[in-house]
Amino acid sequence: MDAVLKSLMERAKNEAEARTANRVGDRPSREDAEAAVRTLIAWAGDDPSREGLLDTPKRVVKAYEELFSGYRIPTESVLDRTFGEIGNFDDMVLVKDITFHSHCEHHMVPFVGKAHVAYFPVERVVGLSKIARVVDMFARRLQTQEHMTSQIISTIDEALKPRGVAVMVEAEHMCMAMRGIQKQGASTITTQFTGLFRDDPQEQIRFLSLVRGVSLR
């Protein structure tokens, strides 16, 4: 029995050393992540070695690579190209109904919704898809909705130096719907404004009216 125990301990030590050797910087290896998933499965009360769960750790880690890919995107690369051929256009540019899914940093369960982003350009504009990419970059991280809203507006403000930026994020949080208070359908709305949007209430109203499809006439 002692020999068997010693062999198991030696094997565990070797596996741990191998995982450590495969790490990039301080980031755990893929093997570490898969082992953690197996531990969670066992903690939940199931058998990670049964047929239906054998490949689950690999699938979860692969899914997490996609769900949290925002950590691997350099912020400065998303808005690195602008366009100057806009004539004398100097009014609001609005991209609304940008769908996203993110994960609550408190419980690691999803929250899903839409973001609406507007800005007043100064001589140059950015490709419309890049606004959506900014939203996606920050959504694909562990987040709070408030911080995500702030990150979106700060990134656009710093990169484009516009006369103003407006951001509205509305989402349903599964940490409220699936657990705890269990209130399905509850919506959380966050807004933040800079420049002209912050200083001129009429521009805030115009932004909100355009987002909601409400006529100002």
Rank of each mutant, 00 (worst) to 15 (best):
N22V: 01
I131E: 05
V24G: 00
V214G: 00
M174V: 06
S29W: 05
K96C: 08
C104E: 08
D55Q: 13
F193H: 06
A33S: 12
S154V: 03
M108Y: 11
T20Y: 12
E51N: 11
L196M: 10
S150H: 12
K58W: 02
V135K: 01
V117T: 07
A35W: 04
T188M: 15
R19K: 09
G164I: 03
H106D: 04
S102C: 05
I131Y: 13
V134Q: 05
R217G: 14
V37N: 03
S129P: 06
R72N: 14
A36M: 10
A159Y: 05
P201M: 08
Q145W: 03
T20S: 13
A3I: 15
S154Q: 15
R212I: 03
S49H: 10
T190V: 10
Q151E: 14
I181V: 15
V95G: 05
G25N: 07
T194C: 10
L210I: 03
L196P: 00
V122Y: 02
T190M: 06
A177Q: 08
F207V: 02
Q192E: 14
G113F: 02
A186T: 15
D200F: 07
T149K: 02
A36T: 11
T191R: 12
D47Y: 04
T149H: 05
V93L: 10
R212V: 03
Q151Y: 04
K183F: 06
T144W: 02
F100S: 02
T155G: 00
V4A: 14
E10T: 14
F207Y: 03
G164R: 01
D80R: 13
G180Q: 09
R206E: 15
R30E: 14
A132V: 09
I205K: 12
P110S: 08
A139S: 15
Q145P: 04
A186M: 11
E76C: 03
V169D: 02
C175N: 09
P162Y: 03
V167L: 06
D55V: 08
A139I: 01
E17F: 02
S49W: 02
Q145G: 04
T144Y: 01
T191L: 02
R141Y: 06
P110M: 06
R27K: 15
F68D: 00
T39Y: 14
Y71K: 10
G213M: 09
L196Y: 04
S209N: 15
M1F: 11
I189T: 15
